[in-house]
């Protein structure tokens, strides 16, 4: 399982989001790879899910078929955990 954490530059915020997703996966006892990327590099990355800001969702929808999970606050563990749970449920 591979989750992509996406922000505008792929250097700051997406790294923070990646850490929050990893923490959420740990707390849910789920194994998975989390990789961070900038918005322009998304297409070259194969992933099972993309976590990103609601501002990017519409743009990405047009470009990729990967399921998108919007996250408003990248450091909000409860919000991220909720979206991870939704993703896991969608996988079933």
């Amino acid at each position: 399982m591979k989750i992509l954490a996406v922000c505008g530059f792929g250097v700051g915020s997406s790294m923070i989001l990646k850490m929050t997703i990893q923490k959420a996966l740990n707390e849910l006892n789920v194994k998975g790879d989390v990789v961070n990327s900038d918005i322009s590099d998304v297409k070259s990355q194969n992933a099972d899910a993309i976590f990103t800001s609601p501002d990017f969702v519409n743009d990405l929808k047009k470009r990729v078929n990967t399921p998108l999970y919007p996250v408003k606050k990248y450091s909000d563990l409860e919000e991220v955990k909720g979206q991870v749970e939704k993703f896991l449920k969608d996988q079933d």
Partner: peptide, 10 residues
Amino acid sequence: KFGTYIVLAD
């Protein structure tokens, strides 16, 4: 350009 996702937490 990218919006307010730099607001990482409350």
